[in-house]
Design a protein around this nucleic acid. Structure first.
Lengths: 143, 143
DNA sequence: CAGGATCCCGCTAGATACTG
DNA sequence: CAGTATCTAGCGGGATCCTG
């Protein structure tokens, strides 16, 4: 057994995770985080506000998130928050007031995604015009 | 009319696009790019290879992409590539050989997404262990 | 080789109603 | 306030067959 340990370690370190592989669990994780609602929730908890750039990360209440992510259904908001909590990207804190107050906040792990998520949201906004123009060109070329 | 031009310009510049708003087209664009297959295609064309870090961006053939993104169906691969082409993120080049050779390559716009997409893929791989551990903790806590 | 065209299943988003 | 529960329509996405 001891003879295989070193080889196993090297094999494991070499293999690691690779999202290019279908069976790799990181492919599923990628699918989880590469998501519209995840992006918006992380950027919101990360301090981004409408038309302002990055700000200070801080906790938000459920209702605040609901208002911020205009048009999100309770189901999707709750579901996405639960997944993020389970994966350890956000914490959920219940204050026993009447009625209860629930706040969500990014963990360290969640914070490590903040920049990328914010970057993607900003990218979509900043390049919207160009993409729209490209689509026009493409459509007329095909039509 | 001339009197409103300045005000309109300021209003437009101020409003811009905001993916937090449901009706904003950038919300849809966000939904497009925050996608598993988009992430993998952009990173592949961006030069990432299994277990290597970022490399040199370069063109790839359809079959090369298909092999690289293990398990992707032709439908999703073709569909995603078409959308990316329409949005101006990739170019599609047909060489009239027999049989035809089709290559895809990132445009400048697509290249501007390369770092973020690669970052997300790497994040999923590098934090897989921690996420898995967090899920275990969460599940035993709930159970 | 690089798709196009179909069929079809499963999940999942979203709407609605209810609750501690 | 912050959810849970339920239902359903729609479509994402895979499988299969076909083609220039």
């Amino acid at each position: 057994m001891a003879t295989t340990t070193a080889a196993q370690k090297r094999a494991q370190a070499k293999a690691e995770y690779d999202a290019f592989l279908a069976q790799c669990p990181s492919r599923k994780l990628l699918d989880r985080i590469a998501d519209k609602w995840v992006t918006l929730i992380v950027t919101a908890l990360g301090g981004w506000r409408p038309d302002t750039g990055p700000g200070e990360p801080g906790p938000l209440r459920y209702s605040e998130l609901s208002r911020l992510l205009a048009g999100v259904s309770q189901k999707m908001l709750t579901q996405t928050l639960r997944n993020l909590e389970r994966d350890g990207l956000v914490t959920r804190t219940v204050e026993p007031t009447v009625p209860v107050t629930v706040t969500y906040e990014l963990t360290e792990l969640g914070l490590s995604l903040r920049e990328m998520m914010g970057g993607i949201k900003s990218w979509a906004q900043n390049n919207m015009d160009e993409v729209l123009a490209n689509r026009d060109k493409y459509d007329t070329r095909v039509a």
